[in-house]
Design a protein around this nucleic acid. Structure first.
Lengths: 224, 224
DNA sequence: TAGGTTCCTGCCATGATCTGTCAGCAGGGT
DNA sequence: ACCCTGCTGACAGATCATGGCAGGAACCTA
């Protein structure tokens, strides 16, 4: 649909060009006649865009509600950026990268000026890195195990230094101040336990048939 | 435009109805002929939607890129949620609330199942609260001062306990592990300094004419 | 293997909509 | 007063969306 695309480009042009912008300029920018541009402008306004049109001056984009759930206030942007900054200091690089990607996506939807200010004001969030999980631990494996609800065989050294081998059912990761924790159903203790991730080693997936042991999501019995 | 609206409703129907959904059902849902629904489906796919259509079965929504910048992967959602959890432990309630609002807005755009799982897996992010800024400090005033670039008069007690009165030019807040820091241009020292927020008291705005003293954004001289 | 269901595509006629051109009115700045 | 610009109406032609029909191919069940 050429029309929808043109609306997008019109919105982009309004954000990009220094205000105020004349209808003639916007018409040239979007490749339509001036008459049609006035119609497009009416469409945008009907869709909720706040565009101030002053005779003898031009158009000024007041706000950009773009799409229903798409707008974030400046405060919200700062909150998200700050939170992401804190995330980078935690011991999960994959998660940190995902957060940055999401943030970049959000910032891309903002007018340049607003994004720039958001970057500027929140300087940084720092915190001393104390104990990150040892690099040998496959965080991605742990996370996927939580998602897919498969059990794992691990070797675990507790805080007293005692080492045991267990089969666990990972339920979720908890990111604490000084260490990563893994909440799991422990087959050895037959109970829910927290494991501190740096103590975990030798992770490998348990055989698939162990799935039936899951207490919360046992597969429906199949007929026959 | 009726067409755009219909696309929205089609997307909504795909999210709402239990998969798989037949074309006939979706056509009835959106009020068009079956032939037209196939065309609409092609349009959605051309726009990037990942919809699996299996002959003899129906349609299954694999992913929901809804709108160009608005889709987040599960990993990104988790990263954001986790980051927000960390944010709550910092000493800025307004910012924390803003972050939660933004997160709610993002979650609202997700299919229910995905949102629920995101809530489930990331249990929580905790950290010991050590020194939050004293409740008497108006964080909002500090933040707005950073945004609007106005100077403040403050009473400041440094880490050695010495108390001074200063005029500062707030530039940004830094959220550290144990304390909030405020980066500002200090008129007393004529240099950039960090102030730990708990040491700040008696904040009030400086007279407006002080604006001319801003080193980085002095107003352009007006003619006459 | 057979039959039913469903996704998917091409073709065509009809009707709606979009678009450009022309004309004119109104508001703001000099 | 004058110019620039936003804004609206009318009309004709071009474009596009839509529905109906026909047929092919994939998937599932029996």
């Amino acid at each position: 649909m050429a029309r929808t695309d043109r609306m997008m480009r019109l919105m982009t042009a309004l954000r990009r060009l220094p205000a105020p912008v004349t209808a003639a300029r916007l018409a040239a920018e979007t490749g339509v006649s001036q008459r049609q541009l006035y119609r497009d402008m009416a469409t945008l306004r009907a869709g909720g865009a706040l565009i101030d049109g002053a005779a003898g001056v031009g158009y000024t984009l007041t706000e950009d509600p773009a799409l229903p759930p798409q707008s974030f206030s400046r405060l919200e942007i700062e909150a998200l950026m700050l939170a992401l900054g804190a995330l980078r200091q935690m011991g999960d690089d994959t998660l940190s990268r995902a957060g940055s990607d999401a943030m970049a996506r959000i910032l891309a939807t903002l007018p340049d000026e607003q994004a720039r200010q958001a970057m500027h004001t929140v300087l940084r969030a720092w915190r001393p890195v104390q104990s990150r999980p040892s690099p040998s631990i496959d965080m991605d494996l742990l996370r996927v195990a939580c998602w897919d609800e498969v059990s794992l065989h691990i070797t675990y050294r507790d805080r007293q230094g005692a080492e045991t081998r267990r089969e666990i059912w990972p339920l979720g990761l908890s990111y604490g101040d000084n260490t990563l924790m893994l909440l799991a159903l422990c087959q050895l203790r037959q109970d829910y336990r927290f494991f501190h991730v740096p103590g975990i080693s030798e992770i490998r997936k348990a055989p698939a048939f162990a799935l039936a042991a899951c207490p919360c999501c046992a597969p429906m019995p199949t007929s026959g």
